[in-house]
């Protein structure tokens, strides 16, 4: 079974601090990490491989330094890695990003499963996974929290819903987006880290993808950022003090209208 797992390198939010004067993000010294949701996709991909055999290819689109994320993916059990990187991709919104990744997946060719994290922690759109499956015209099951059964014939999975979950059956190839509940990602292994060190990710540019240039990057993106602004910071309000009984009384009084 050949599995492709799409990952994204994002700024590590645990490092993110806010400049108290300008109220903007301090990005200096912020480490880049694999999108936390993609870690679950990598783990699930490796588990499918361990169950069914085959190989896992990690795929990312990003600047050259995104290679670090691919190496980490290899240390976590992925076998191969593909970096899609070109200035022509700059300015891609989710439409162009999913177009580009779909083109890369077509070029990888032989695949049974595409796995994605449910969303990226920087963009939070949850649009790229479904976008890829639409471009590839393959079935998708989003927000899956469990793979009950998987084989060349197809898969049975649990899709998380607001109220519980749906059990869904799908033929392969299929795209899945995974939620945190699906697994606990393993730690990297030393042997994996050594493999990662010597691994040479495949690098493709726009020309390699045989894609429509008009569908790439800013040009291929229907949406534009009109402006970026800092929201008025939420101001701290009133501090209440006194004994537990006193503050409780005061607070209950203040909130009375909201709770009845």
């Amino acid at each position: 079974m050949n599995i492709i797992v799409c990952i994204k390198q994002v700024p590590n939010t645990t490092d993110v601090r806010i400049d108290p004067v300008t109220n903007t993000l301090i990005r200096d010294g912020v480490e880049s990490v694999i999108n936390p949701f993609d870690a679950y996709a990598i783990e699930e991909a490796v588990r499918i491989k361990e169950r069914c055999g085959g190989k896992v290819t990690a795929l990312t689109m990003g600047p050259p330094q995104a290679e670090t994320a691919l190496r980490e993916a290899i240390s976590l059990g992925c076998d191969e890695a593909v970096l899609v990187s070109d200035r022509k991709f700059a300015g891609s919104d989710t439409w162009a990003t999913s177009y580009t990744l779909a083109a890369a997946i077509r070029k990888i060719g032989d695949f049974d499963v595409v796995l994605c994290g449910k969303q990226a922690s920087d963009g939070d759109t949850a649009q790229v996974g479904p976008g890829i499956s639409a471009h590839l015209d393959i079935p998708q099951v989003t927000y899956i929290k469990k793979i009950l059964q998987i084989s060349a014939q197809g898969a049975r999975v649990e899709r998380m819903t607001e109220e519980g979950y749906d059990e869904v059956e799908t033929p392969l190839p299929c795209l899945f987006t995974v939620v945190k509940e699906i697994n606990t990602p393993r730690m990297p292994s030393l042997k994996g880290m050594m493999r990662a060190k010597s691994a040479k990710p495949v690098k493709w540019t726009a020309a390699d993808l045989e894609a429509d240039p008009a569908a790439l990057g800013l040009e291929g993106s229907p949406t534009r950022v009109l402006k970026i602004f800092t929201p008025v910071p939420r101001k701290g309000g009133e501090m209440l003090s006194g004994s537990a009984a006193d503050v409780s009384k005061e607070l209950a009084e203040l909130l009375k209208d909201m709770v009845v």
């Binding site: 439409w95 759109t125 639409a134």
Partner: peptide, 21 residues
Amino acid sequence: TIGRSLISRVAIRTGAGLTAD
């Protein structure tokens, strides 16, 4: 979960711009 899954695919298919959340 339904909305995000559906509209993302429809946007791709119809060449629409889509902005989340």
